[in-house]
Amino acid sequence: MQGYIDYNELLNKTKMINKVSMEKIAKFEKHMQLFPPLADKTIRGIFNGLSVEISGKTGRTILQQNGKFGYSKSLRTSRRKVKKYLILEIEEAFYLAHVLKALEIYDTKEQLLTFSNFLSICLKVDENFIENFAAYLYLKSKGWIVKSDVNYGGKYAIYRTGPEYFHASFIVLVTKFDSSSIAILKANYRVQRIADINNKDVLHLEVSKTTNSEIKSIEDFQGLQISEVVRRKFNFLKVLSIINSNNNKR
């Protein structure tokens, strides 16, 4: 069973103003030891311009059973044949390739993408990739299953064991430390309104200011810092029941 580092502590916090240093890379690898071992052979993936595709059945099975990575996609190649893929978001692929060393990423011309090559590509796909990946690492170090948020307007949705077992525990909003206050307020307001309607809490992660040139290796992500704030939904009926209960005790 997967362990969840500081899960109860995270739930009980409403604010954490002090910045939290990135966990060491060894901590991430230690976390993955809570899952069954990954395959001895490195899994092969193809970058399609937006995400990384895993076509091999063994690789798909291993990644889905060891961390709930990616999502399945089927493509009918003929009347009787259906080809199945596992689609990895760029943060997932970067994590598997350069933190866990479990994935090799190739382009469509069969050229192996190095750390610097893939980082450059990711920044073209997402100009905020550095901050988003730092937040992804931070959440993985806490033991969360991290998936892209396609329903509530945040960057990620995080789960205790996976989306097939429970609904998301938090909607995650990621912003830069040097972002304008107006932009942050607008993002918070948009996500918070959707979260309230859907009975969700919001975890806001603010990543320290950095420049893309500062990241030369995976270890450089340890130099980034993250502050977190948990914004909980306001339950008027619950508050009212607590007030009534206190009044009855008097």
Rank of each mutant, 00 (worst) to 15 (best):
N8T: 11
K13L: 14
M16P: 01
N18E: 12
S21N: 12
F28M: 13
H31C: 10
H31I: 15
H31D: 13
F35G: 01
P37M: 03
K41Y: 08
R44P: 03
I46T: 09
S51T: 10
S51A: 14
E53L: 15
G56L: 11
G59Q: 01
G59S: 03
T61A: 14
Q64T: 13
Q65R: 13
N66D: 06
N66G: 04
K68A: 08
G70K: 00
K73Y: 08
S74R: 13
T77E: 08
S78H: 05
S78F: 06
R80G: 10
K83V: 09
Y85V: 00
Y85C: 02
I87M: 08
I87H: 01
E89L: 08
A93W: 00
H98D: 07
A102F: 04
D107K: 02
E110I: 07
L112K: 15
S120D: 12
D126L: 04
E127N: 14
N128H: 10
I130K: 04
N132K: 14
F133P: 00
L139Y: 01
K140V: 00
I145M: 05
K147I: 02
Y159S: 03
Y165F: 14
F177D: 13
S179P: 03
I182E: 15
K186I: 15
Y189E: 15
V191E: 02
Q192W: 09
I194Y: 05
V202P: 00
H204R: 09
E206R: 15
K209Y: 09
T211M: 10
N212Q: 15
K216P: 04
S217V: 05
I218Q: 00
I218L: 02
D220I: 04
F221P: 01
G223I: 09
V229D: 05
V230G: 01
R231G: 06
N244Q: 13
R250K: 15
